[in-house]
Lab assay of single mutants.
Amino acid sequence: GATAVSEWTEYKTADGKTYYYNNRTLESTWEKPQELK
């Protein structure tokens, strides 16, 4: 079936920290989303 993983994109900030952005909800988070675990 369809999965929600594709909504999240992993980015890195200029200082090398990783964060996650959800293209559907426009939410961003420092925590790894449940969908990616």
Rank of each mutant, 00 (worst) to 15 (best):
G1Y: 09
G1S: 11
G1H: 14
G1A: 14
G1F: 13
G1W: 09
A2Q: 13
A2D: 13
A2G: 13
A2V: 13
A2F: 10
A2T: 14
A2M: 13
T3A: 13
T3K: 10
T3I: 13
T3V: 12
T3E: 13
T3L: 12
T3P: 13
T3W: 04
T3M: 13
T3F: 09
T3C: 14
A4W: 05
A4Q: 14
A4K: 13
A4H: 14
A4M: 14
A4I: 12
A4C: 15
A4R: 12
A4V: 15
A4E: 11
A4P: 11
V5T: 11
V5I: 13
V5R: 10
V5C: 15
V5H: 11
V5A: 12
V5L: 13
V5Q: 14
V5E: 11
S6F: 08
S6W: 08
S6H: 10
S6V: 09
S6A: 11
S6E: 10
S6Y: 08
E7V: 06
E7P: 06
E7A: 05
W8V: 01
W8H: 00
W8D: 01
W8K: 01
W8L: 01
W8Y: 03
T9Y: 09
T9P: 00
T9R: 11
T9W: 07
T9I: 13
T9E: 10
E10K: 04
E10N: 02
E10M: 06
E10V: 09
E10Y: 03
K12P: 03
K12F: 09
K12R: 13
K12E: 07
K12V: 14
T13I: 02
T13N: 10
T13V: 02
T13F: 03
T13Q: 04
A14Y: 04
A14P: 11
A14S: 11
A14T: 09
A14V: 12
A14D: 10
A14G: 07
A14H: 10
D15W: 05
D15P: 00
D15L: 04
D15S: 08
D15M: 04
G16H: 02
G16Q: 02
G16I: 00
K17P: 01
K17L: 10
K17F: 06
K17H: 08
K17Y: 07
K17S: 06
K17N: 07
K17Q: 08
T18A: 05
T18I: 14
T18H: 06
T18Y: 08
T18K: 07
T18P: 06
T18V: 13
Y19C: 09
Y20K: 00
Y20A: 00
Y20D: 01
Y21T: 07
Y21E: 05
Y21G: 02
Y21M: 08
Y21K: 08
N22D: 02
N22G: 00
N22P: 01
N22I: 00
N22Y: 01
N23H: 14
N23W: 14
N23F: 09
N23Y: 09
N23E: 11
N23I: 12
N23A: 11
N23V: 11
R24N: 10
R24Q: 10
R24M: 11
T25P: 00
T25M: 01
T25R: 01
T25H: 01
T25N: 02
L26M: 15
L26R: 15
L26I: 03
L26K: 15
L26H: 15
L26A: 11
L26F: 14
E27S: 03
E27T: 06
E27F: 02
E27N: 04
E27G: 03
E27I: 04
E27L: 05
S28V: 15
S28L: 15
S28K: 14
S28G: 12
S28Y: 14
S28A: 11
T29W: 05
T29F: 06
T29S: 12
T29G: 03
E31W: 04
E31P: 02
E31F: 07
E31R: 04
E31T: 09
E31N: 06
K32S: 04
K32G: 03
K32Q: 11
K32I: 11
K32V: 10
K32H: 04
K32Y: 05
K32E: 09
P33W: 03
P33H: 02
P33G: 02
P33M: 02
P33K: 01
Q34R: 06
Q34W: 09
Q34F: 10
Q34E: 15
E35D: 12
E35C: 13
E35F: 06
E35P: 04
E35A: 08
E35W: 04
E35V: 04
L36Q: 07
L36I: 09
L36K: 06
L36H: 09
L36N: 08
L36T: 07
K37F: 13
K37R: 13
K37C: 15
K37I: 14
K37G: 15
K37E: 14
